[in-house]
Design a protein around this nucleic acid. Structure first.
Length: 885
RNA sequence: GGGCGGGUAGCUCAGGUGGCUAGAGCGACAGCCUUACAAGCUGUAGGUCACAGGUUCAAGUCCUGUCCCGCCUACCA
């Protein structure tokens, strides 16, 4: 034991324990159990490669909850798995294929999907290994994938179920189209990005008149598809033109001037070109006025044959240039005004999205959204932090139909079959046998489902739905969902709606939405920005536990949590501190083994420092438990850190050393007990280090230390035994004396090796008795003292430094050492501060309303404070006068 | 346009329902290799709690307004 290395080596320790936990089946959840259930489904990472910093945070927090509840004796299920992640994964694969000189199209659908599966096998193994490196205690026996066989069944079942309820339908509507990915997208997948564009002012000549109607547009190329010009019905400038026609420049088509309320007379020129096939608003106007929908773009963003010949096959952007050029040439271009505006981009491939008219499958989510709102209002789901509830409601209340079909290959095929003879639609689990028309030939819809459709089934599909499994009975609804707020709409909202739609019950009781990891400038960390911290590198450098501690410790309830390298370093120092505290205790336990009999252990527990540390531990247990209960991971981390470092190590172990030097081991045994409990408290945050130390500490058998479990992973969560205010108050007083002596020594530069005499004057007999009892025992552990004198009244020795604590005065004779000027500066500083504090307290107490209205307790406290401050002030003033004379 | 979050020490952040003399980590300064830990120990400095009003006996905390920063959301061509 004494051979424990001085420096904690995480690589060595962390390697061995995960396997141990796995082999013992500690992470396995029982489908049926007497224990109360606690379940979390993991937000399945995309199979697109390695875990990023956001996963590290998300999964650390989940593992904290899971490990904590497991120790509390719950039947804990942490459901793991991965997501096939539709378009995103396809795009990455396409890039790989491009590097290999081939393409998705060249491979063809079947080959392409085959390759995707091969890749999935690689990446999901890698992701699992990374989660394990992070210490995640998932139930790996139950690992799932959003595209595995069970999911195929679940997705089809869900689709059918919702279709039969009339919630899924096909419609031709204006949708967001990505010309790069050749697919429809939902609103959520569109990221509006502000760009510097232009307002192009164009003249449209009015037919049978010499008037030119000036319109303004940011997208001149769409004029090729214009089928009207609109003005506001009440706009006096254009009244006389309504009903006339303009000749569309470059196209030589005649299009009508119509009146529509949508037009804003204040904006632009007050005249709006209408392109029903390529703009959402224009589409609406077109429907109201029965305008032609003239599509001029191909699916991949080029110009089609509906446009004048010279533009056909040009890209959107080349076409814009040429149109502007031609308008200028022909005198239709009035001016170009710079204009900054938001343009929708596909969030996955960053292509400018094109509004387009397209037949798609939609889901009418409104009824489910209403149920979700109602369920939340009834308290069936709670969002943490609370502010997220408002965001959730706002989104749900304004929800629009969800386009669920995607013109892609990697995903769940729509369970829709078309009759080859009559085109009739059949929705079914498998290919139908016969159509109503009698035909027997069918083809399945080519489209796949939006990847979030299957992710939305995650909480129940992973538990075996549509089968009525024990897992569902035991664990659904799950306890908590932990994820970043950025996917509240994408995923959380969909899970709630689909949970209600398929299970008739919300999927989880609580949703904890944590912040996103950011850098020191508050910028979200991302690979593309290059400001990201790589979890695996970090683990290699600092160790998993240090990393996890930093993550928990910085996880405050703000939207962007900055993670600084220095905080991970602090985590590492903390692991080392724990390690060394354990080393000290273990080394000494070799000399003083924990006795077999409880009696021997408990004997001597009247020692003040033992009462004190046990009281503080009790307080720590209470605070830490309350913190994690309420998802305040940072508070839990900080509480445990402060207790372990600044109370247990800084003070208690020093007391214990003092006792050991006199061959009194009880304080050491208590230290071992406190450390053992601390290892349990810290285990959710730092699983590896705590297991290593816990295994070496006495924790079973006949002694009084804790329990006899095989692993801290399944050891019981500590319970507070109650606090001891008297012991704490006494100890605080002793500490103040010690700190004041140390402060004098430090500020007056008394060499560390030099012993000093300490004279303490205290008018209170009880205080004197306490000080006599304890100072003799404790002082030597903290500072070198040659002699302690305690009396009711003492003359202040000449050439001495002084400290004042209430009615207590400490004198340290420093003849020949003392720098009177330094002492004067020191006392003046304290005196001035005291004067200020006295003034503040007096001001409060002189207010009659305060005495009258404030609670008695507050008034009494204030009086006590003032009394103490006045005494201190007086003493300091007197000493200063003496020093000056 | 609507909404949300933030502005507290040099830096990054804590300060649940108003009430101890406003805290931590990191950094800074000074002194220590005190046999668990120099990845450590001891001491010190550093804050008009963005600004202006208001409510209250009492405001970092509650209300109103203003100014910055960030984000979400919306169909202004």
């Amino acid at each position: 034991m004494a051979s424990l290395p001085k420096i904690y080596d995480p690589q060595e320790i962390e390697g061995k324990w995960y396997q141990f936990w796995q082999n013992n089946g500690f992470f396995h959840a029982e489908a049926t159990s007497d224990k109360p259930p606690y379940a979390i489904v993991i937000p399945p990472p995309n199979i697109t490669g390695s875990l990023h910093i956001g996963h590290a945070l998300d999964n650390t927090l989940q593992d904290c909850l899971i490990r904590w509840k497991r120790m509390q004796g719950y039947n804990v299920l942490w459901m793991p798995g991965t997501d096939h992640a539709g378009i995103m994964t396809e795009l990455i694969m396409e890039r790989r294929l491009a590097d290999e000189g081939t393409s998705r199209i060249a491979l063809g659908r079947e080959k392409f999907v085959e390759q995707m599966w091969e890749w999935k096998e690689e990446t999901s193994d890698y992701i699992v290994s990374q989660l394990q490196k992070l210490g995640c205690s998932c139930d790996w026996d139950r690992e799932r994938f959003t595209f595995d066989e069970g999911f195929v069944t679940a997705v089809k079942t869900a689709f059918l179920h919702l279709y039969n309820q009339g919630l899924i339908y096909r419609d031709t509507y204006m949708v967001n189209w990505c010309p790069n990915c050749n697919t429809v997208l939902s609103n959520l997948e569109i990221e509006p990005i502000e760009i510097d564009g232009n307002f192009y002012h164009i003249r449209y000549p009015v037919i049978d008149s010499d008037v030119m109607l000036e319109i303004a547009t940011t997208r001149p190329e769409t004029m090729l598809g214009d089928t009207a010009v609109a003005v506001h019905p009440d706009d006096e400038r254009y009244q006389h033109l309504i009903g006339k026609k303009v000749l569309l420049p470059l196209c030589d088509r005649k299009i009508p001037i119509i009146a529509d309320d949508y037009v804003d007379t204040e904006f632009g020129t007050g005249a709006l070109k209408v392109t029903p096939a390529h703009d959402v608003n224009d589409y609406e106007i077109g429907l109201r006025h029965d305008l032609e929908q003239r599509t001029v773009f191909t699916q991949d963003g080029h110009i089609n044959e509906n446009a004048p010949k010279k533009y056909v096959n040009l890209s959107r952007w080349d076409c814009r240039k040429m149109v502007v050029e031609d308008l200028k040439k022909e005198g239709f271009l009035v001016k170009i005004v710079p204009h900054r505006h938001a343009v929708g981009h596909h969030d996955r491939c960053n292509t400018v999205v094109e509004p387009a008219i397209s037949p798609q499958w939609f889901m009418n989510v409104r009824p489910l959204a209403e149920r979700a709102i109602e369920a939340t209002k009834k308290g069936e789901i709670t969002f943490i932090p609370e502010r997220e509830t408002t965001r959730f409601f706002h989104w749900m209340e304004n929800i629009e139909p969800w386009p669920i079909s995607r013109q892609r290959w990697w995903g769940h095929r729509l369970p829709i079959w078309y009759c080859n003879a009559c085109d009739a639609v059949t929705v079914a689990m498998d290919t139908p046998q016969q159509c109503e028309c009698g035909a027997t030939d069918f083809h399945q819809d080519e489209d796949v489902l939006d990847t979030w459709f299957s992710s939305g089934l995650w909480p129940f599909s992973t538990m075996g739905w549509p089968e009525e499994t024990d897992e569902l009975k035991t664990f659904y609804p799950t306890s908590v969902l932990v994820t970043g707020w950025d996917i509240l709409f994408f995923w959380v909202a969909r899970m709630i709606m689909l949970g209600l739609g398929c299970m008739d019950e919300v999927p989880f009781r609580k949703v904890y939405l944590h912040g996103l990891v950011a850098d020191e400038k508050g910028q979200k960390m991302s690979k593309s920005k290059g400001n990201s911290i790589d979890p695996l590198e970090t683990i290699a450098t600092y160790g998993t536990d240090a990393f996890r501690f930093a993550l928990a410790n910085t996880s405050t309830p703000i939207p962007y949590v900055p993670l600084l390298e220095s905080q991970i370093e602090a985590g590492k120092r903390f692991t080392n501190k724990i390690w060394n505290a354990a080393r000290f205790i273990l080394m000494n336990l070799e000399k003083f083994p924990v006795p077999a009999e409880n009696a021997e252990m408990t004997e001597g527990q009247e020692l003040l420092e033992i009462q004190w540390i046990q009281s503080r531990l009790s307080h720590t247990i209470k605070t830490a438990t309350d913190a994690i209960e309420n998802f305040r991971f940072y508070e839990m981390a900080q509480t445990l850190y402060a207790f372990l470092w600044h109370e247990f190590c800084d003070w208690y172990l020093e007391f214990a050393k003092q006792r050991l030097s006199k061959n009194e081991p009880k304080a050491l045994w208590v230290a071992a007990d406190v450390l053992e409990q601390m290892m349990r408290l810290l285990h959710p945050i730092m699983p590896f280090l705590t297991e290593e130390i816990w295994q070496q500490l006495p924790h079973g058998g006949n002694n009084s230390l804790a329990n006899d479990n095989a692993s801290v992973t399944v050891a019981p969560w500590p319970e507070p035994i109650g606090e001891n205010p008297t012991a704490e108050a006494t100890m605080t007083n002793i500490m103040e004396v010690i700190e004041n002596i140390r402060s004098i020594r430090g500020e007056l530069n008394v060499p560390i090796g030099a012993s000093v005499e300490v004279h303490i004057q205290s008018p209170n007999a009880e205080d004197r008795k306490r000080l006599e009892t304890y100072l003799e025992q404790y002082l030597p552990a903290f500072t070198r003292v040659s002699n302690i004198t305690i009396a009711e009244s003492l003359p202040k020795p000449s050439a001495s430094a002084e400290a004042v604590i209430g009615d207590l005065a400490i004198y340290i004779p420093l003849a020949g050492v003392i720098d009177f000027e330094a002492e004067k500066v020191r006392l003046t500083k304290r005196h001035d501060q005291t004067v200020k504090d006295v003034a503040a307290a007096q001001k409060t107490l002189e207010n009659p309303n305060f005495i009258e209205r404030a609670p008695e307790k507050v008034v009494a406290q204030k009086r006590e404070l003032l009394e103490r401050l006045l005494v201190e002030q007086e003493k300091l003033a007197r000493s200063l006068t003496m020093l000056s004379s």
